[in-house]
């Protein structure tokens, strides 16, 4: 009888120790990226042979400080300013792009293959601020509502998964034919 209770007490103490060591399991990646897989017309993955840049672009009201003649600083709102963010700078040898969407309701990506060849992809998206637990902070997820693109170099683009969250999964597939790419 005493033995049984001793076992139970040991078990209880173990449980206390386990519960006191409880930690939150925060996801290792708290940012949500749109993943673009590069593909040839047959669906095989491919890489660019020459370096490629990707510029993210949004349009937003920007507050700037203007120094007046009397030395005072005045805040001026520049409406609908174009904001560019170079996300990938002259990189190659990758079979996919991971690009961050903006907190606006659309994000435009300009793929610069070289100095004269560009494609523009515009993604309209619904933003979903997300909370998992108190220790891990908030995250922004997205739901893609519409995609438009130019076809100067790329052949076509399909949306494979419109839900963009912190699980790194393919969201878009960009198809190329025979321009500056390696299979």
């Amino acid at each position: 009888m005493k033995k049984i209770f001793a076992i139970i007490l040991s078990f209880a103490a173990t449980v206390l120790l386990i519960s006191s060591c409880e930690e939150e399991n925060c996801p290792p990646n708290s940012l949500a990226y749109a993943v673009f897989a590069l593909s040839d017309q047959y669906g095989n993955s491919l890489q660019f042979t020459s370096p490629v840049s990707v510029i993210g672009q949004i349009q937003a009201d920007v507050t700037v400080n203007d120094t007046l003649e009397d030395g005072t600083i005045q805040e001026i709102i520049k409406a609908d300013s174009i904001i560019n963010d170079t996300i990938i700078n002259q990189e190659s040898a990758s079979e996919y792009f991971q690009l961050p969407l903006s907190y606006d309701n659309y994000t435009r990506f300009i793929i610069a293959y070289d100095e004269t060849n560009f494609d523009t992809i515009t993604i309209n998206h619904q933003n979903i601020p997300y909370f998992t637990n108190l220790d891990c902070g908030t995250m922004m997820f997205y739901n893609v509502t519409d995609v438009t693109y130019t076809r100067h170099v790329l052949d076509s683009l399909t949306t494979t998964n419109p839900n963009i969250d912190n699980n790194e999964k393919e969201n878009f597939k960009i198809y190329y034919t025979n321009f500056a790419v390696d299979e």
């Binding site: 940012l31 993210g56 949004i58 937003a60 009201d61 920007v62 507050t63 904001i83 963010d85 996300i87 961050p100 903006s102 907190y103 606006d104 933003n127 601020p129 909370f131 902070g137 908030t138 922004m140």
Partner: peptide
């Protein structure tokens, strides 16, 4: 559940979203 306003970590951080 509420928290600080979320600020876009990219694109100049000019867009904020309340949480």
């Amino acid at each position: 559940v509420d928290g600080p306003t979320m600020q876009d970590p990219n694109y100049g951080g000019v867009i904020t979203v309340p949480f």
